[in-house]
Design a protein around this nucleic acid. Structure first.
Lengths: 244, 244
DNA sequence: TCAAAAGTGTTCTATCTACACCCATGA
DNA sequence: TCATGGGTGTAGATAGAACACTTTTGA
């Protein structure tokens, strides 16, 4: 899909809004950074092309308003199902809330961003306006969405180092070389499968399944299949300094 | 001040609220966890005793609603000045946003919490309803405020390890033994001034002032005075694992 | 000259990186 | 039997904890 410059705004900003009792009204939306990091070395983010001003035709992150009787977590789940057919995620965590009155040129909108991870083998039918974009080749995005993606990637990079968050990137069983490639796509540098295995094993993150993967067409020793010992987040490496 | 059990609620919960156009109305408030960690070994949090239901007489964190034309950061600054006379902080960072519809029994309130740090030598006049509470002896607090304090302390503990955030705890110049005590109060375990100095020095966080502190009444070698090389947050220790 | 507090030097250990070498498979 | 990819063993580097020892002050 082509990238088109946003045309001029056709609406005027609505400005601060209050009801008759003086209670402020806000639109509060939840924004998702859905990341998938594949053994092919691609780390990609799920985006939606806008059809309305502002930022018409620009890429944006899937998002939607929170209703009064639901939490932000409920809202993000609901909107991901409705807007990009995503009904299953292996991990979600809140990134932060943006409240700059100028972040949306038309409305007063507060936005809370979430990092959402899905396994690299998860595939489903995307709506026509949705598409995967490579994280390291992002075009200019609508609103502050580019910044939010960068924040998400930075958070994920950090958590790869000191938690078992890798479980959210992988299928149930995987080869170490695939995991290393997936990590490398996120970290932005080479990751040695050899050393990664030892690090994760010492921390008790890995479980050997006993199974082996079929070797490729050109031969090679068949890889062992591993799985993560636990599929919920835990801190596996307490910070190095200032330990008791 | 004595701790009194919250009496029974006198108002009914107001429930979901919408205006005539169907736009949801939310109260969005900013909550501050103001921490001060002293060389005496006390880590304390600034609290306000509630005068109204719900949770009347319970301790709570200073907070207040965000107006439509300000950001959350503006709101927290404004409310801290108005409610606890705090007009100067050395660091503030967003912790997270709570949106559970049941978190406030009366209103539909979304709350964004902030970690706020002030130097250990900063003193000022508190209003009568405000007081410092020790972080490791917290009484049951209003709403989910106790959880929020714990989150703030955990965040600060982590950042002490891999950033220069110590600058926000100290006066311009300080003795290493005082810094170690302040760190220890946050971390919850002994911190060796000897080793702390070497860690911070190798990371380039420390600047020697050349000055010396006066020794105590019972003698002892006078301590060198140090200051932090930079008084804004930077990551000084990249995560140990998965480096290039 | 002694106690108290601060600072330095040195050793030990844990953990990560690098790299050589061995293993299992298909052509 | 050779190329290909996977796995193991081991040496080196780094950083932090622990602790003994030295320095500088007041009484």
């Amino acid at each position: 899909m082509s990238q088109i410059q946003a045309s001029e705004h056709v609406h005027a900003p609505s400005g601060p809004v209050r009801d008759e009792a003086g209670v402020a009204k806000y639109r509060h939306e939840a924004i998702a950074v859905v990341l998938q990091s594949c053994p092919t070395g691609e780390c990609r983010v799920l985006c939606v092309q806008r059809t309305r001003e502002p930022f018409v035709d620009k890429w944006s992150l899937p998002s939607g308003a929170m209703e009064v009787d639901e939490s932000l977590e409920d809202a993000i789940t609901r909107h991901l199902a409705a807007k990009v057919n995503l009904t299953s995620m292996s991990y979600a965590e809140q990134l932060g809330t943006r409240s700059d009155p100028a972040r949306d040129p038309f409305d007063r909108t507060i936005a809370t961003a979430y990092l959402v991870l899905i396994p690299w083998d998860q595939e489903w039918d995307l709506p026509v306006d949705a598409s995967w974009l490579l994280v390291d080749e992002l075009p200019p995005m609508a609103f502050d969405h580019q910044e939010i993606v960068e924040l998400a990637v930075a958070r994920l990079q950090a958590k790869l180092s000191y938690t078992n968050i890798g479980f959210a990137l992988t299928p149930e069983e995987f080869r170490m070389s695939d995991l290393a490639q997936s990590y490398a796509a996120i970290m932005g540098h080479e990751v040695s499968a050899t050393n990664l295995q030892r690090i994760l094993a010492r921390r008790g993150q890995l479980k050997a399944t006993g199974k082996k993967a079929a070797p490729g067409a050109e031969g090679g020793r068949p890889a062992k299949l591993f799985s993560f010992a636990q599929r919920s987040l835990e801190i596996t490496d307490q910070f190095a300094t200032l330990r008791p």
